[in-house]
Simulated scan of single mutants.
Amino acid sequence: MKHESPGNEVTIREVGKRAGVSPATVGRVIGGYGKVSEPTRQRVLEAIRQLDYHPNTIAQSMKGKQRKSVGMIVSDICNPFFGMIARAVDDTLIKYGYNLVICNTDDGIDKEASYLKTLTEKRVDGVLACTACEVERKIPRPVRKFYLETPTVFIDREAEGIDVPVIQADNFGGAYEAVVHLIQLGHERIAIVAGGSMVSSIHQRLQGYMKALQDFGLQFRDDLVKLGRLLGVESGAYAARELLNMPAAERPTAIVGLNNLMTTGVLLAIREAGMTIPDDISVIGWDDFDLAQVLSPPLTVVTQPTYSIGSIAAEHLIALLERQRSYRQANDRKIILKTELVIRESCTSPKAPK
């Protein structure tokens, strides 16, 4: 039977008495600050459950104890993909009373480490991260330590040796389907334009590209894979110019951009070269956007359920923060959502050589 204090309001002192600890220790458990051993923390949480204790949120806020904040690591908030992710995350968190702090890393691991230090100082409750950790690159110790010790959900990307939930699209399958589409149209020289960092999502897309070539007996060529210096439009244009300046017999007949900013750069470079799509070269983009349908010609794209990725990731983090024990027993540590190839008019069979 629930113990009730006068006025039917359970006090922090009564929680401490039930758990066999001081009110100050109860406060540390509720506020998430200071050092409390795990057995003690569990006793306090059990006492809170038994007594149905609800903290005075107004008093907590006045004392500076309430956090209710989540940090979010993104590589480039100007990228519409990350903008939509952030919107979905914020829409979800606000329903649970959490605030969102966004940190923009430009895919720099040192900048990410600096932001994680800031988020530690702000004592955020948890983190949603599109990490800049690269495949087969050493992860800085402070970054690894933070993600292993802080409630974290990775979005779009993962990092080797950091076992946290991951919500992402089928990067491998999306790239595979796009390249197969081009191969079936008759293309053999298919180029890839991607960002400069070999994060897991880009690595998975490249693996899908190479697997499609292999399955159809086409040779992989290093010179047809261009990693832009950064993730922006100009970086994509620079990479595409290198491809378009190749001798005609070696030049790709199709290009797949592996994110929407890089794809925009590809379109810019093609226009600068005086070439037309799809007569001179076919193009497939990654991520749909409003103008893709009204471009001339409309752009074929690999679309991913961006809003769903963000909202599902936020729901997972809330579950991790508020129902830790049951959540860690779940089997959905990695969720991969389906992509879709939206076929429009930017791809056709390559011209016969003159």
Rank of each mutant, 00 (worst) to 15 (best):
D290N: 06
V44S: 09
N259C: 10
K351C: 09
D223K: 13
D156R: 01
S311K: 04
S201C: 09
H187G: 12
A239F: 08
N245Q: 14
I48P: 04
M72T: 09
G27R: 05
A352Y: 06
Q293G: 04
A273C: 11
T150Q: 12
D280T: 10
Y327I: 05
T92Y: 03
G195C: 00
E234C: 05
I312P: 05
N79V: 06
F216S: 10
D280E: 10
V135H: 01
Q168I: 03
A132C: 01
Y327C: 05
L218S: 13
R325A: 15
A313L: 06
A175W: 02
I335D: 03
R344K: 14
V74L: 07
D170A: 13
K117P: 01
R271L: 05
T253E: 08
P23W: 07
R271F: 09
I30R: 06
P151M: 07
A113K: 13
I48K: 06
G83L: 04
Q168P: 02
V26N: 08
D222T: 13
P297Q: 02
R43Q: 13
E250A: 11
K334T: 14
D279V: 10
G228M: 06
N8D: 15
G16Q: 06
L128H: 02
R157E: 00
D52A: 13
G208W: 01
E250Q: 15
Q329K: 14
R67P: 00
L258D: 02
D91W: 01
C103A: 15
V266P: 05
R323H: 15
A254F: 05
E9C: 08
D106F: 03
K211N: 11
S75P: 04
N259M: 03
Q42H: 12
V44F: 10
S5G: 15
D107P: 00
S75M: 10
R144Y: 11
L268N: 09
E177G: 02
R43N: 14
T57Q: 15
L230H: 14
M84L: 10
L317C: 10
L100W: 09
G97T: 02
M246K: 10
V256E: 02
Y176A: 05
T40G: 11
A59H: 07
A273I: 12
L317M: 09
P151T: 10
G208S: 01
I162N: 11
I73W: 03
S235E: 07
A319S: 14
I109F: 01
K122C: 10
E345T: 04
K2S: 08
Q219N: 13
Q207S: 11
S326T: 11
Q329I: 05
R333K: 15
Y53G: 02
D332G: 08
V294T: 10
K226C: 08
R323E: 12
Q293V: 12
T306N: 00
V342F: 06
I192M: 14
S201I: 00
V283P: 04
V233Q: 12
T118L: 14
D280K: 08
K334F: 07
E272P: 03
N79P: 09
F220A: 11
R137D: 00
R328D: 06
L321A: 07
V294H: 03
V70F: 08
I192A: 12
P247Y: 08
V10K: 09
T118E: 11
I30H: 04
V26Q: 07
A129K: 04
K338V: 03
I155G: 01
S197H: 00
V74E: 03
L291V: 11
G64L: 14
E9V: 15
F289E: 02
R18L: 15
